[in-house]
């Protein structure tokens, strides 16, 4: 049996707020409430990275949040997708280039779907999640690394070592 097609039938969500104003977060919760009812797609908000498939990130990623975001990302088992919800999560939004933010989620972890809006509307969040499901179906089970985190050829690192390597890079501030 092809197990891949069941990925999009039961995506479980982890929702993480990286310093957002809570506007997008309220919209995400609205999606789960009776009016939009995301559960009809089998979507559950697990609140636990180890059992989740979709990471919904809001907020511009403050300096304090970047390490947490990376750790949560590494605790999620592959295949997984990341959805950046809201203008701040996509680009940094009104906070872009401020001293305390990292200009969007994709500067820390690879992002698959960007959902714009300030705050993003529930309809567009649902649209984004459904788009993410299509990507999820095609994903492989290899560990996905952020672009700034290079592993030299021939070196075999386990998950914990990879996380530490990436943490080293983002804490040193050297990223292209």
């Amino acid at each position: 049996m092809e197990l891949k097609k069941f990925r999009k039938k039961s995506p479980w969500i982890l929702h993480y707020n990286t310093g957002s104003c809570n506007g997008c977060d309220i919209e995400i919760l609205a999606c789960l409430a009776p009016k939009y009812d995301l559960e009809r797609f089998g979507i559950l908000n697990r609140g636990n990275p180890k059992q989740s498939d979709i990471l919904l990130v809001t907020g511009p990623v403050t300096k304090r949040a970047k390490e947490r975001l990376l750790r949560l990302y590494f605790e999620m088992p592959e295949p997984k997708v990341v959805v950046a919800v809201g203008a701040c999560a996509c680009t940094g939004g009104v906070f872009r280039h401020m001293y305390n933010v990292e200009n969007g989620v994709d500067s820390i972890i690879p992002v698959d779907v960007y959902v714009p809006g300030c705050a993003a509307r529930p309809e567009s969040i649902i649209d984004g999640v459904v788009k993410a499901l299509e990507i999820l179906e095609k994903k492989k089970k290899e560990i996905e690394l952020p672009p700034y985190c290079k592993v030299p050829e021939g070196e075999k690192l386990n998950r914990r070592k990879l996380l530490e390597r990436c943490l080293e890079v983002i804490n040193a501030g050297r990223r292209s």
Binding site: M1, L3, K4, F6, R7, K9, S10, P11, W12, P34, D37, E39, R40, F41, G42, K50, D53, E75, P77, E78, P79, K141, I143, R159
Partner: peptide, 25 residues
Amino acid sequence: MQGRVGPPVLQPFYDFLKLMDKRSI
């Protein structure tokens, strides 16, 4: 009971099959 549509009845089995496909940690 909450006025929602809710998932299909087979949803637990979809969850089951999906979990089978995940990388183990």
